[in-house]
Design a binder for these strands. Structure first.
Lengths: 193, 193
DNA sequence: CCCATTCTTGAATGTACATTCAAGATATTA
DNA sequence: TAATATCTTGAATGTACATTCAAGAATGGG
């Protein structure tokens, strides 16, 4: 008889930002009411509780990132150019030092790992989809004869994921663009080797 | 007129373990009294507060890891063997999935980054010492003519640090020894390239 | 062996938090 | 426009937490 007034995606993006800034535990419901513009009652009505809001935010994050991924890879340029652009984009995010540009999945994974099996599973699954998408790109490059070497596409994707995780953590101590870009360049070379 | 009864190092190792298991925020003082065997009053007397206990625990962690580092590198075997052993050791820690085997520095860095400047600074400094020690090993190998290529020793150390950070995060989603060892092997190759 | 000093104990304190709920507001339907 | 269903509001609730503190215990010097 009456529809909710808020825009679910916008609310979840606000929650995302809050969780990325302070981490799940340290983010209070008060932070979340501010970040989402919703009153506590509305949050509990729509997402059950703080944990439910995190799960919904992770889902929205995955959708948003998937759009971005498609944007980078859906074109006719050479696959390796797209991959390099993708990695350079990660570097830009790291350099900005803007906590909103962090990766919600890895942030939550590092915080919650071994504490909440269900959330850990959700995050792992999302990261796996991610890795699969990268594997597909490497597979494409291989089928085009662009990539050679001992590694298969899955191994390349795993190594790239590992490198991106590492880059994001490393950036906390060395936020200089030059250093990060250099590491990313070598990572790209090594992945393609 | 009277000495403290507890063994400071042991107390701090208990606190370390607690912080590594749950993270700083989620670890309650009750957890810490259990983990350290100390009553709240004693903790506050010795370390001011929970934050002070974390800082002291980080310091103890650094000392302990430094001992371990020396143990691995203080011998007459080839430098690169030692480096490989060191990396393999990280893999073993990752595989165990034992949260006590995590790295307190990276765990705290990922949680607290951009939230507590002083702690961030302490962690960064400790990680830098770490990186410097690795740089020295690469420098040694280079001076022995074992390492060639475009990279300088600092760049190699940075790349290795990045890789280790990445490996630790990646292990949360892929704790299989085989996969992690494969990634570590390639990382070592690429670092030495 | 007693005194002075320091350490230990753990219950008490106040605060900050996640969550609930009942009253009020608003939209849709008839 | 009236009735009804649903959403919104934000103060109230109980809990869990970090921290304090005063009483008690233990040590070593004299």
């Amino acid at each position: 008889m009456r529809n909710a007034e808020f825009d679910r995606a916008q609310v979840l993006r606000g929650a995302m930002a809050a969780f990325m800034r302070k981490g799940y535990t340290k983010t209070s419901m008060q932070d979340l009411t501010q970040a989402t513009g919703l009153h506590p009652g509305s949050i509990y009505c729509a997402f059950s509780n703080k944990r439910g809001l995190l799960i919904a935010a992770i889902d929205q994050y995955q959708q948003d990132r998937n759009e971005q991924f498609k944007l980078i890879f859906s074109n006719t340029r050479p696959v390796l150019n797209n991959l390099k652009n993708y990695l350079d984009n990660v570097v830009v995010e790291c350099v900005s030092c803007d906590s909103q540009q962090a990766c919600l999945l890895t942030k939550a994974l590092n915080e919650i790992a071994e504490q909440d099996d269900e959330i850990q599973h959700i995050i792992s699954q999302n990261l796996q989809l991610w890795q699969n998408a990268l594997t597909a790109q490497f597979e494409l490059a291989t089928s085009q004869g662009i990539l050679q070497g001992e590694l298969n596409s899955e191994q390349r994707a795993q190594y790239l994921m590992m490198g991106i995780y590492g880059l994001r953590t490393f950036a906390h101590t060395h936020p200089q663009a030059e250093i990060l870009q250099q590491l990313a360049n070598k990572l790209f070379d090594d992945v393609c080797r």
